[in-house]
C-alpha cells in the first residue's frame, strides 16, 4: 500500500490547525468564565438568591445565567462554541485525510487513536451543549484536557503515516477501535463532569468552579453520558474479544490491555450500581466515575507505553 505524502502532509497541517483553533476556543471560554464573574456573581452577592444553586434545584444555575443576556460573557461563550465547531471540522478532516493517505482505517497507532478520542470528546461535548446549552461555562474545563491530549499526540506520540502490520489488517479494527474511541470520548466527558461535581462540593476548591451550572446538572450529565457510553464500551470489549479470537488464537487471555479494560468495565458497572444504592448515589458515585476515567486514561497511556503486551503495536515516535 503506497502512502500519499501530499494527503499525509495536509492531514498533519489540519491537525495542528485544529490544535490552534481549540487553543483559541479555550481562551474564549476562559474569557467567558472570567466575564461571568461580574455578571452572574454580582446579583448572587446582592440577592444571595441562588443559594439553591448548588443544592440541586435544577435549572437554577441556568436561570441565573440567563439574565446576563447579551453580556460580554455570553458573547465570548457563543464565539467559543462556534470556534470549537470549526476546530471539529479541521480535526475531522485531518483524520479523514490520514485514512485516505494510507488507504486504511485511520486508527492504526497511538497518534491516530489519541486524535480520534479527542475528536470524540469534542463532538460529545457539542452534542451535550445542543441539548443543555446552560452547561456551556463548563467548556473552560472540558476543552483543556483535549488540548493536552492533542499536544501529546502531536509530539510524543506522533507517527508518520504508514501501513499497519498484518495483525491489524482486519475490518475488526474499524469495529473495535472505533467503538472504543467513541466510548472513551464519552467517558472523558462524563469523568470531567464528575470531577467538577466533586470539586463543587469540596469546600475551598469549590470557589474555582462556583460559577458552573448547578452541581446537580453536572451529576446528571455524568450519569447520562456514562449510561450511553457503557453499552458502547461493552460492545467494544466484546468486538475486541471476537477479533482476538481470530488474530491471537483466543478470545480472552488477560493481556494487560484486556485486564485493564475488564477493570474499567467493572468500575463503570459499580458506578451504575451505586446510582441505584441508597447512600451512594451522588458523591460516592462521582468518585467511582472519576476512578473509571483514571483507569481509561491509564489503559491508554501506561499500558501502551510501559507494559509489553499484544496490544503494543502502537508505533510510538
Amino acid at each position: 500500500m503506497p502512502i500519499d505524502p501530499v494527503l499525509a502532509l495536509f492531514s498533519d497541517r489540519l491537525f495542528f490547525g485544529a490544535v490552534a483553533v481549540y487553543t483559541l476556543a479555550i481562551l474564549l471560554h476562559a474569557a467567558e468564565y472570567v466575564a461571568a464573574r461580574e455578571t452572574v456573581r454580582a446579583p448572587a452577592l446582592v440577592g444571595a438568591g441562588d443559594a439553591a444553586d448548588g443544592a440541586g434545584a435544577d435549572g437554577a444555575g441556568a436561570a441565573g445565567a440567563e439574565p446576563a443576556g447579551r453580556s460580554g460573557s455570553e458573547r465570548f461563550g457563543r464565539m467559543a462554541v462556534s470556534i470549537t465547531v470549526l476546530g471539529v471540522l479541521l480535526h475531522g478532516a485531518s483524520i479523514v485525510l490520514r485514512g485516505l493517505a494510507t488507504e486504511r482505517w485511520p486508527l492504526g497507532n497511538m497518534y491516530e487513536f489519541t486524535a480520534a478520542i479527542c475528536l470524540a470528546v469534542v463532538v460529545t461535548w457539542l452534542v451535550v451543549l445542543r441539548r443543555s446549552p446552560s452547561l456551556r461555562l463548563a467548556g473552560a474545563f472540558v476543552l483543556p484536557p483535549v488540548w493536552i491530549l492533542m499536544f501529546l499526540g502531536g509530539t510524543v506520540l506522533y507517527a508518520q503515516a504508514a501501513p499497519v502490520v498484518p495483525a491489524l489488517q482486519s475490518y475488526w479494527l474499524a469495529i473495535h477501535v472505533t467503538t472504543v474511541t467513541i466510548a472513551s470520548g464519552l467517558l472523558v466527558v462524563a469523568g470531567v463532569a464528575s470531577l467538577l461535581y466533586l470539586l463543587s462540593g469540596s469546600g475551598k476548591a469549590a470557589a474555582l468552579v462556583a460559577k458552573l451550572p448547578s452541581a446537580a446538572a453536572l451529576d446528571r450529565l455524568a450519569y447520562r453520558v456514562t449510561a450511553v457510553a457503557f453499552p458502547i464500551f461493552t460492545f467494544a470489549v466484546i468486538a475486541g474479544a471476537i477479533w482476538a479470537e481470530a488474530a491471537w488464537g483466543r478470545f480472552w487471555g488477560w493481556d494487560p490491555k484486556e485486564t485493564v479494560a475488564f477493570v474499567s468495565w467493572i468500575i463503570y458497572a459499580a458506578y451504575l450500581h451505586a446510582r441505584a444504592t441508597a447512600g451512594w448515589r451522588t458523591t460516592r458515585a462521582a468518585w467511582i466515575n472519576s476512578l473509571g476515567l483514571a483507569t481509561v486514561v491509564f489503559n491508554l497511556f501506561f499500558i501502551n507505553m510501559v507494559v509489553a503486551g499484544l496490544h503494543s503495536y502502537a508505533g510510538i515516535g
Binding site: 487471555g253 494487560p256 477493570v263 458497572a269 459499580a270 450500581h273 444504592t277 451512594w280
Partner: peptide, 25 residues
C-alpha cells in the same frame, strides 16, 4: 452494598494481573 464491595474487590484484584508479569503470558 455487598455487590458493590465485591465489584471493587474484583477490580482491585485484577490490577496486579496487568501490572506484574504473568506466568501464563
Amino acid at each position: 452494598r455487598t455487590a458493590l464491595v465485591l465489584l471493587f474487590l474484583l477490580a482491585v484484584a485484577a490490577l496486579p494481573g496487568a501490572l506484574l508479569p504473568q506466568r501464563s503470558l
